[in-house]
């Protein structure tokens, strides 16, 4: 249920609260499937510059953008020529009770 294909699944540790509205909290474990093509509407992991970021992929002004699930964080447009890369789709969150 957590892992579709172990070969292209990775675990990442979440740092920050910008995805709280989507149920992803600081310190949670994120199960990411790099074998699925990210589609708008999904929570995705992207490489932005030299770090990994988790956000919701949305359509924006004819292109794509990354949206936080927290009012304090701005929308991050993804220009076609920007230094970024969509890596995979977040499938599940693992949190210690």
């Amino acid at each position: 249920m957590l892992v579709r294909d172990p070969g292209c699944t990775v675990l990442l540790r979440v740092g920050g609260v910008s995805m709280q509205g989507a149920g992803i909290g600081d310190g949670d474990l994120l199960v990411v499937d790099c074998g699925l093509e990210p589609r708008p509407g999904q929570v995705v992991v992207a490489r932005l510059g030299d770090g990994f970021t988790v956000k919701r992929l949305v359509r924006w002004r004819g292109g794509l953008a990354l949206a936080a699930a927290h009012p304090a964080y701005p929308l991050l447009p993804l220009p076609a020529d920007g230094d970024h890369q969509l890596l995979g789709v977040a499938r599940c969150v693992i949190r210690r009770c």
Partner: peptide
């Protein structure tokens, strides 16, 4: 980074 839970990389939600 891919084999030890204590050492997995961070993904930013900032």
């Amino acid at each position: 980074a891919t084999t030890c839970l204590a050492q997995i990389p961070r993904v930013l939600a900032r």
